[in-house]
Design a protein around this nucleic acid. Structure first.
Lengths: 337, 337
DNA sequence: GCGTACAACTTATGCGCAAAAGGAACCGCC
DNA sequence: GGCGGTTCCTTTTGCGCATAAGTTGTACGC
């Protein structure tokens, strides 16, 4: 790889002059030499050494995207088929702004922070990482951080969070079920934290507003580990007759549940109505097609990246940015009277 | 961020001594000072400046992962829900080897090569990038390159390719259809290049081995652009009565087609048998569950990364590595007599 | 004809690190 | 008691770049 020094030598001028041309500093160099240098640069296809540049400038032009990883396959976000849209959104946005993306998958916020300070990353996007330990570590590290889908109270004080109006989403779809005559409505999820908790709250609120009492038996817990999922699904199917509808926390679970129900001869929506959340291909191509709550996952990535870029440019951004959801009515809900 | 120089100053010793401790060069430094330095390093949580290190060492510890992008959503690989598994495989493997991953999404091989030489990336994994122009550019750039799913004849001469035995996969599943009594079998795809061509060839070979003649009307072309897909699906459904089975080039298309067929009252597998390729959630949770060809997409990422790491360590690797496929028999094929 | 201003350069410095080269002190050995 | 070999340090150099500071030449104003 050719260096500025070598170019300067061959053109018989100083490195500063070459550097000035590269940075388009007009007024510092005559049109004549400028052209000479530019032509040479084009000829040799000069590419700056980023390490040297970053060292001199104390910046990196790197934005880190850290994804939560856990032991279990479907708790490891990179294994969620639809994260790739989010990744794509982030990459596209920052690339257009002249940044590069370093992807990091880990469950250990502290490890990520170390990595981030090693690389002198200019900014960081954390997806699915809660962890108050991470917040403590990131305090030292002064660079901008934007979170995605974090409901950590502590975190929200420190960083901008880009999320969804999860509560409104499940509120709307639960309300839709109620309008269709349903009263015995269950909620299915694998945990009661963060995003899932917000969705649960929306569901509860819709019940409350309709004067329907929520009981803890309405919560159907699915255990997603491959060793337990079959047993877990079996229990849920056995209890399905207690309800006329089930609000699932995600399309993935909705579709998984529907497959299990159909395998047991329980028909959707005739015997039971099922709704999801996310609106991805899984529900779209299922028959009957899944009634669900739409979210634009790519927009989440784009918004997070945009927000970070704003911070990088020195602007303040709000603590909480909530993207809207939209009810998508398809064929898995039966009107009952 | 604290520097070696600052540490040396505070401990009243030279930077080289500190650097030696950091690099664990025993024998160069007494146990006494070693401990002193180590304690200090732990205390201040020293993190090296990678830019400086890389500049001095002329390496980067970065591995680039470049994904093909195209204008249309489903031709943009990052939008394929199942690429994330591959990304996860690559990330995990290289992280365990002490490397970092830079993700790059572009359709322009030349642009990628520029980026790659800017960052002085140690090695590169190209996924879905064919382009003989890219090969030419990469000639200049001497770093190791591993391709995934590339069928470029020219490319194979230069790089190791990690792929699938695509031909065998469609051969096996077509053969299975034939064994179930099918003779009028169509093949559905959106193009006839690379991976899709190999899958088409496997299908043709199975037909030939069974003495069934292949006609060009057996090829059902699907147009995946959102503006055209409905019309395209409609044409295909209208022609479905010409066949008793359709081999789809991917699970996504198989599931998309099944939804369209069901919407038109054509039943799978009673009226027509459908098989896919990939074995992902889409087919797994569909009812009837999709008969398909399994591939381990994460393994592709892991293998590509491993291969690259081997090259980085100075080893030669074979030009072509083909991962096996496996027939997964479920419920979308009817036995006919 | 002297000072000022400015254009168009060059020289010199430092970013943080790694490593080559250079020393000083000590040991054992013939 | 001089010499090679260790051990444990320090000094120095340079990676490629950006930039502050310095230099020259020339035009201009009065």
């Amino acid at each position: 790889m050719i260096t500025i020094k070598e170019i300067a030598k061959q053109l018989n001028m100083s490195t500063t002059t070459v550097s000035n041309v590269i940075h388009g500093k007009t007024g510092e160099v005559s049109d004549d030499t400028k052209k000479k240098v530019q032509d040479f640069l084009d000829k040799v296809d000069y590419v700056p050494n980023i390490n040297a540049r970053n060292l001199a400038q104390n910046e990196s032009k790197i934005i880190g995207l850290a994804l939560k990883a856990r032991a279990d396959k479907y708790e490891n976000l990179i294994m969620d088929p639809f994260v790739s849209e989010l990744i794509g959104g982030v990459e596209e946005t920052i690339r257009n702004a002249g940044y590069f993306m370093m992807l990091y998958i880990s469950s250990d916020t502290v490890e990520i922070m170390r990595h981030v300070s090693t690389w002198n990353v200019d900014g960081l996007i954390l997806f699915g990482m809660i962890g108050d330990d991470g917040i403590r570590v990131s305090e030292k590290y002064k660079k901008p951080i934007v979170c995605i889908d974090t409901y950590s109270i502590e975190g929200l004080k420190h960083f901008t969070n880009v999320g969804l109006d999860d509560e409104q989403g499940t509120y709307d779809i639960t309300n839709y079920l109620i309008k269709q005559g349903h009263k015995k409505i269950a909620f299915l999820s694998d945990n009661m934290n963060g995003v899932d908790l917000a969705r649960l709250n929306g569901y509860k609120k819709a019940l409350a507003d309709a004067g329907i009492k929520y009981k803890s038996t309405n919560f159907l817990k699915i255990r997603p580990r491959s060793s337990e999922i079959e047993e877990s699904l079996d229990e849920i199917c056995k209890r399905s007759s207690e309800f006329t509808a089930i609000v699932c926390v995600s399309d993935l679970y909705a579709v998984t549940l529907m497959a299990a129900l159909e395998d047991r001869g329980i028909s959707v929506p005739d015997d039971i109505s099922i709704v999801g959340f996310d609106d991805n291909m899984l529900g779209k191509y299922h028959r009957p097609a899944l009634t669900t709550v739409h979210q634009d996952i790519k927009a989440k990535g784009v918004t997070a990246a945009d927000t970070l870029l704003k911070q990088l440019a020195g602007h303040k951004t709000p603590n909480q940015i909530q993207l809207p959801t939209k009810l998508v009515i398809r064929d898995t809900v039966k009107k009952i009277s």
